[in-house]
Design a protein around this nucleic acid. Sequence first.
DNA 1: CGATGAACGTTTACGCCGTTTACGGTTTAC
DNA 2: GTAAACCGTAAACGGCGTAAACGTTCATCG
Lengths: 251, 251
Amino acid sequence: MHLHEPTRREQRREQTFAEIVTTSRALIGEGEDLSLRAVAARMGVTAPALYRYVASYQELVDLVAFEVDRLATEGFAAAADALPADDLAGRLVVGVCAFRRWALSAPREFGMVFANPVAESPCTRRELLTLASSGIFFTDLIRLLWERERFALPRLEDLPDTVRAAVLDPLIPAKVDDIAAEDRGLVWIMMQGWSRLYGVVALEVFGHLDPRVVESGEMFVDVMTSALPLLGLDHEQERLDALMRAELARS
Amino acid sequence: MHLHEPTRREQRREQTFAEIVTTSRALIGEGEDLSLRAVAARMGVTAPALYRYVASYQELVDLVAFEVDRLATEGFAAAADALPADDLAGRLVVGVCAFRRWALSAPREFGMVFANPVAESPCTRRELLTLASSGIFFTDLIRLLWERERFALPRLEDLPDTVRAAVLDPLIPAKVDDIAAEDRGLVWIMMQGWSRLYGVVALEVFGHLDPRVVESGEMFVDVMTSALPLLGLDHEQERLDALMRAELARS
DNA sequence: CGATGAACGTTTACGCCGTTTACGGTTTAC
DNA sequence: GTAAACCGTAAACGGCGTAAACGTTCATCG
């Protein structure tokens, strides 16, 4: 066995595979619900044909969820690019606001990515946990911020045992290899930040909060603001608060 | 038209209606998925017959969700009853821990109640928002706590406009009529607490967090502990922290 | 009392779904 | 050139929500 450059067949396979995903995304983007038959029909193909590419409906969902997350993250990054590259805190704020905007404008997509059954094998789970594009986007921003600002981290020996174990051999979407073992308190901070962000956005998306509060975004502001000290950003609170409210005003 | 005492027919109707709900709950409790046909079969009836009682599948889901929430709340209340009636803070801590235990042990039920489509009419929505048993349980505990302790509330004039409007004419599951207008800052505290609780539990249930951290409950402890000052419970932090960890140790 | 009409359940049917099986045609590889 | 791998089809199975038509039961009222 030697290495192949991609043969014609492999190219074609890759291509229809991609078409399956994009067609799926188009479907849900138009408010239809995702189904093998609908995707097949739109591709001018019969449903069982898709089984040459996908093992099951659930696998298709996972695939599309990953792609949806990837595309959404491109949007977050683009939004953050409106700020200078060295304004890491600002980019983070703009990024989380873009995340919230996306979630509220595409609740079905949000649900697909972040409220999936997740009753899958530990293996798949590990992949999903560690590969989420949006996760990497945010955690990396936090890492860069810390590398420059060196805000205070919790000391490893102050962390609960299970948390210490988790941050030393982490299972989160982040490039943790660049973080020295003694600085892994940063990973705990990433997890805390993610909890706050995910929590409040999920609450808003699923509508278990007064609609007026959702619309104004005040709960989001409240939770995010209260999380700023985690990143040693207390001193910038005013600027970031203003920035956040300006972002919320966009739609 | 005059008032009837319930006639025989109405009784029978009410009864089969209840049987539909309990049968549905039994189904999902056994890990099966909820479907009109399955419920009908288990009742020894054909599926279209159910349409005499429910207008659609979605309506059945909503109905069952409400019932599931009600039963779960009974469990929370029972757990809280392990503590003396005057230990309101302790009961609250035990209650939220029971909520988390329930959510993690019955993720499908949790999802049904708290991650529902919620794309329904404002009317239905209002009902769902204001009638959730679990919501009333927690908010009422907070109200009792405040009536005794009178911890500091945000002043109405310090709240953002939209929040002030929302707390003055609230849309949350709580007996707010007992709260004077000038004390409605308490409603905002209820919302903040609910956001924290819902957020971290949803995160854990849907598995978007390191499984080891979920299992140990440290993120839950972290979020809940950081929310204690909202209720003026800083001074009891140690006791409540110990209580919380003891509760988490239960399974 | 007997008739009337509402309430209720059945049968049948439609159109959707995921998935399996068996079968041809095409492309690749030896 | 031929054998094998690949890729699509058609047909079918069992499940789903839902609609329409049809009988049966039963409370009510003249």
